[in-house]
């Protein structure tokens, strides 16, 4: 029983907007399965008193004051955009719904 199914890989590819061919899904499903198994070995040695790690540094509460910092000009902000119109980033037709 693989750790990740072929269908799950295809689903993730869809969510990530990756246009994978059928043979690519097969190929990646096998690779991802190995990766998950490898990571899964960590779970075998983790004791109950060790919380899952999300951050490598034991640091909390890094804040900045609510003070203005210089931002980019609209021109600079748009300079790297493939397309711009009326001071805005222009993107192709959106299929689907507002989030």
């Amino acid at each position: 029983m693989p750790s990740i199914s072929r269908d799950e890989v295809a689903h993730l590819a869809r969510l990530a907007r990756l246009d994978l061919q059928s043979d690519e899904v097969d190929h990646l499903a096998g690779q991802l399965d190995q990766i998950i198994d490898a990571v899964g070995q960590v779970a075998q040695v983790a004791a109950d008193d060790i919380p899952p790690t999300s951050h490598a540094l034991p640091v909390t509460n890094v804040f900045r004051p609510d003070e203005l910092r210089p931002c980019l000009s609209a021109e600079a902000a748009l300079s790297g955009a493939p397309e711009a119109e009326d001071g805005r980033f222009r993107v192709p037709q959106i299929l689907g719904e507002e989030q």
Binding site: P70, C71, A74, A77, G87, F89
Partner: peptide
């Protein structure tokens, strides 16, 4: 998460940063 202004009504994309 950044020091850009939140002022309403600015020109488009005039209050953005990296």
């Amino acid at each position: 998460f950044c020091g850009c202004s939140t002022e309403f009504g600015a020109e488009p994309n005039a209050q953005v940063c990296p």
